[in-house]
Design a binder for these strands. Structure first.
Length: 560
RNA sequence: GCGCCCGUAGCUCAGCUGGAUAGAGCGUUCGCCUCCGAAGCGAAAGGUCGCAGGUUCGACUCCUGCCGGGCGCACCA
C-alpha cells in the first residue's frame, strides 16, 4: 500500500514540481484509494483547482501503471487496479503473518514506560485499570516497531501514608487477618486510621514518627512492618496482572530510590535553582507562569512525591538514555509532571522534552470521583469476575458445546473490560457504568473477538485450496484491503501519540467492514479461483484483527 | 479566585498534519437465521459540530473571548 502511495506521490512530484505532495483519503472509498487536492497549485498555476485536476488527469495516467487517476471537482482521485491491490496486500500479510505491520524503525532506541503504579495497601480499583492497560498497550505497540522498551511499575510504597499504616497496624492490627486477607484488611486499617485521627492527635504523631523512622533507614520494627505490608500487597496485585496478561520489566517502588534521595536533592541544589521558603526546600517555577513551586524537602527534612520522582527520572536517564520516558499517569497529576519537567528545564537538561506525561481521563462514579478512603470504589477484581461470568452466560446460551468454556469466558470477559478502557481517546473522562462494560454488542471487544472467531471458522470449513486465486473478484473488498494496507501507519501513529485508541478504532472499523463483506460474499462452494481469493481475504483479515487485538492485550479466540 | 483538560445525533464516541454531501455504536422503528457463527447483517429516523467573533480560497479542525462540565492549586501521593 505504502509503495503505491509513494508511486503516486512521485508521479505528482514529477508532474508538478511539488516536493512532497500531500495525499489524503477520499470521503467515500468508492471514489478511490488516494486523493490529491489541487488547491495548493491554484496560486502558482493561476487556475481554478477543478481545471488543474482535469489537466493533471491525463498527464498522470500516462505516468502511472495499473493506477488510474480521475479528476473529480478540485480533487484528483487515484484508484489502484483492484486485482493488484488485493494481491499485493494479501501476499504481504501472508508472508509476514503475526509480524505484519511491525517494523524495525525503533531499533537501538529505548522507551521507558512508567505504568500501573498502584499504591500498596489499597485494593486496585477500576481506576488503576487505566494506567495498567493503556501503558501495557503503549509498550506492546513500541515493541512492534522495534524499540527496546522498559516497562516499570513504579509502586507507591513510600511516603507518609506508610507511617499511618504502620501506626494503624500497631494499634488495631489484631482486629484483622492480614496474612490471609491482606488487601481488605489493609483497607479497613486505612479507613479506621482516618476516622480516629481526628479525635486522637497522638495517632497522627505516631504515624509521622513512624515515617521518619522509615526514611531514616533504621532497620527496626517499623521497617519490618512496612516490608510485610508491601510483600503481601504485591502478591495480590500479581493475581490481577496475570489476569490482564501484563508483565513488567521492572517493579521498582518509590522505596527503590530511597538511597538516591540525598544525591538527588544535592544535584538540584548544586544546579543553583533551589531556595528556602517557609522552612521547606523548593524550586521556584514562577518564570513558567502561574505555577506553584516544586517542593523537594518538607520542614521536617523528609522528602516528597516530587523528590522521589526526580530521583527516578535521573536514574532512568542514566540507566537507559531513553528516547522517550512516558509516564502513564492520570490527568489529575498534570501539575505534578509539569513541575517536574520545569525543574529539569531549569537545570538545563537537554533531554527534558523526552519526558512526557501520558495523561488519561478520570474514571468517575455517578457519585463523583473515586475515593478509597470514602469507600467510593469499584474493585477491579469484581469487575473482571462479573465480565467473565457474563461471558460464560452468553457462551452457555449461544455455544454450549464449546470445548473450554471457562477459559474462553475469561478471555472474552477480560477482553471486554480491557477493550472498553482502550476504545476512547485516553484524555476523555469515563463515567464508570458496569452495564456498559458488560455489553458485548456493537463497538466492543467481544464484537471484534467474535469476528475473529467467525473468520477462523470459515477458514476451517474451507480447508486447503491449491488453486491460484482470481484476485479480481475482491473488487468489493477494496476498502478492507486499503485499511489493512494502512495498518503499519496506524501503529506508527499510535506509538507517536501514545494513543492505543487509534488501534481500537482501526480494528473496530475493520471488523465492521469485514462482517459486512462476509454477509454478502460467500467463500465456500464457488469456483476454486474465487474461493481461493476470498479465502485469502478472510485469512488476511483474521490475521490483521488478531495482530491488533494482541497489541491491545485482548485475546483473539479461534472459537467463542 | 487562578491554572490545565474536555464540550460533535437522546446516550457513548470517530472525524487523518484545515479540504469534497459531518461518520459509527447503543437506544428507537422496520426487515433478515432450510446458505460459511444472529456476540451478526441491511434499512429508517436522529446533528445550529457549546456560544460569539477572527484568520483562510476553504474551519468540527487554528486564534481570541465567553458559557458548561471535570481535575488541580506548597510541606498527601
Amino acid at each position: 500500500m505504502q509503495s503505491f502511495l509513494d508511486e503516486i506521490r512521485a508521479a505528482i512530484a514529477a508532474e508538478t514540481g511539488l516536493e512532497e505532495p500531500k495525499l489524503e483519503r477520499p470521503r467515500d472509498p468508492s471514489m478511490g484509494d488516494a486523493a490529491f487536492p489541487c488547491f495548493v497549485l491554484a496560486k502558482e498555476r493561476k487556475a481554478a483547482p477543478p481545471k488543474i485536476a482535469q489537466e493533471l488527469e491525463t498527464a498522470l495516467n500516462a505516468r502511472l501503471n495499473r493506477i488510474e487517476a480521475k479528476a473529480t471537482g478540485p480533487y484528483l482521485n487515484f484508484t489502484i487496479e483492484r486485482a493488484l491491490l488485493a494481491e499485493s496486500v494479501l501476499t504481504a500479510i501472508t508472508e509476514a503473518g503475526a509480524s505484519y505491520g511491525t517494523s524495525s524503525e525503533g531499533e537501538g532506541k529505548s522507551i521507558v514506560i512508567d505504568l500501573s503504579s498502584p499504591n500498596i495497601a489499597k485494593p486496585m480499583s477500576v481506576g488503576h485499570l487505566r494506567s495498567t492497560v493503556i501503558g501495557a498497550a503503549i509498550q506492546r505497540i513500541h515493541n512492534a516497531l522495534g524499540y527496546k522498551t522498559i516497562g516499570i511499575n513504579h509502586i507507591g510504597d513510600w511516603g507518609s501514608q506508610f507511617g499511618k499504616l504502620v501506626a494503624a497496624v500497631n494499634r488495631y492490627g489484631d482486629t484483622v487477618d492480614l496474612e490471609n486477607d491482606p488487601i481488605p484488611s489493609l483497607l479497613k486499617l486505612y479507613v479506621r486510621y482516618h476516622e480516629e485521627e481526628e479525635d486522637d492527635p497522638t495517632l497522627g504523631e505516631e504515624a509521622a514518627a513512624a515515617f521518619r523512622e522509615l526514611e531514616s533507614g533504621v532497620d527496626g520494627p517499623v521497617r519490618a512492618t512496612w516490608k510485610k505490608l508491601t510483600d503481601l500487597s504485591l502478591v495480590e496485585f500479581d493475581k490481577i496482572y496475570a489476569r490482564l496478561g501484563v508483565q513488567f520489566d521492572l517493579v521498582r517502588g518509590e522505596a527503590y530510590y530511597e538511597s538516591h534521595l540525598e544525591k538527588t536533592v544535592n544535584r538540584i541544589v548544586d544546579a543553583g535553582i533551589t531556595e528556602e521558603s517557609e522552612g521547606a526546600l523548593v524550586v521556584d517555577l514562577s518564570s513558567f507562569g502561574k505555577i506553584p513551586p516544586c517542593l523537594l524537602r518538607k520542614t521536617d527534612g523528609t522528602t516528597l512525591y516530587a523528590t522521589r520522582d526526580m530521583a527516578a527520572v535521573f536514574h532512568r536517564w542514566e540507566e537507559f538514555s531513553f528516547e522517550r520516558c512516558l509516564y502513564v499517569v492520570g490527568g489529575d497529576q498534570r501539575l505534578h509532571f509539569r513541575q517536574m519537567k520545569h525543574v529539569l528545564d531549569r537545570m538545563g537538561l537537554d533531554w527534558e522534552p523526552r519526558v512526557e506525561h501520558i495523561d488519561f481521563g478520570m474514571m468517575r462514579l455517578p457519585e463523583g470521583k473515586m475515593s478509597t478512603r470514602k469507600g467510593r470504589v469499584v474493585f477491579l477484581d469484581d469487575v473482571l469476575d462479573a465480565a467473565a461470568a457474563e461471558a460464560k452466560r452468553v457462551i452457555e446460551a449461544k455455544n454450549a458445546d464449546l470445548a473450554d468454556k471457562d477459559a474462553t469466558a475469561e478471555m472474552v470477559g477480560v477482553g471486554a473490560v480491557v477493550f472498553n478502557d482502550l476504545k476512547r481517546e485516553r484524555v476523555k473522562d469515563i463515567d464508570f457504568k458496569l452495564e456498559e462494560v458488560l455489553s458485548f454488542e456493537g463497538d466492543t471487544g467481544p464484537y471484534v473477538q467474535w469476528t475473529h472467531a467467525r473468520l477462523a471458522s470459515i477458514e476451517r470449513k474451507v480447508g486447503d485450496v491449491t488453486e491460484a486465486p482470481d484476485w479480481s473478484v475482491l473488487a468489493s473488498a477494496a476498502p478492507i484491503l486499503g485499511a489493512m494496507g494502512r495498518y503499519s501507519d496506524v501503529l506508527r501513529s499510535a506509538a507517536r501519540n501514545a494513543e492505543p485508541s487509534e488501534i481500537t478504532s482501526f480494528v473496530l472499523s475493520l471488523a465492521r467492514d469485514v462482517n459486512s463483506w462476509v454477509a454478502q460474499e460467500r467463500v465456500l462452494g464457488q469456483e476454486p479461483a474465487v474461493t481461493a481469493a476470498r479465502l485469502a481475504l478472510v485469512q488476511g483479515a483474521r490475521q490483521v484483527i488478531g495482530n491488533a487485538l494482541t497489541l491491545l492485550g485482548v485475546g483473539a479466540p479461534m472459537e467463542m
